[in-house]
Amino acid sequence: QPRGLEDPELLARETVFSVSEIEALYELFKRISSAVIDDGLINKEEFQLALFKINKKESLFVDRVFDLFDTKHSGILGFEEFARALSVFHPNALVDDKIEFSFQLYDLKQQGFIERQEVKQMVVTTLAESGMNLSDDVIENIINKTFEQADTKHDGKIDKEEWKNLVLRHPSLLKNMTLQYLKDITTTFPSFVFHSQVDD
């Protein structure tokens, strides 16, 4: 059952968003969750349309990111899950939270480490989705160099500690974990003031 915006103050305490930002984020949530079925929840199709702009039926990353948002494993997103996950993408979110989320994202099989075969699968998917054509030799070369940088324990996989060390040395690897415009949420959705549940 859709429950809407129940406790904006609690969500504001537990995320990087202020109460006003939570209420403005709810305006965005209503827009996304009514795109296909107006039920106050975001299904995978609405998620894909809003956050990835791709119409393909299946996408490795849409599925993986959706699963990470869907912490209650219900196959559908409520506002609380949406707000908590997007909080990690806020410019003010803790770097450690971004590192953790990105590790989970790339640990496709959820084994606690990123293995070479997963990296290759993600590279091949990315190249296919962006229409780039690289030979298998070049792809293998890119992956070899990446593991030379990341796999400091030389066991053929990247664990969380190695991932953390890699992204701290190469912060640009976390670029996709920050959405700068989330800072503008209240000015983009000013109508939240008409539905506000809290006093100034």
Binding site: A50, Y106, T146, S172
Partner: peptide
């Protein structure tokens, strides 16, 4: 003499980041 080609400058995760990027920018356009 063997030509090993240009050095690889891109990390696999930089590449993957292109596909795994969320994009809500359309909702924020003024």
């Amino acid at each position: 003499q063997r030509n090993s080609g240009p050095p690889i400058l891109i990390n696999a995760f930089q590449l993957i980041g292109m596909s795994s990027c969320l994009d809500l920018s359309g909702f924020f356009e003024k």
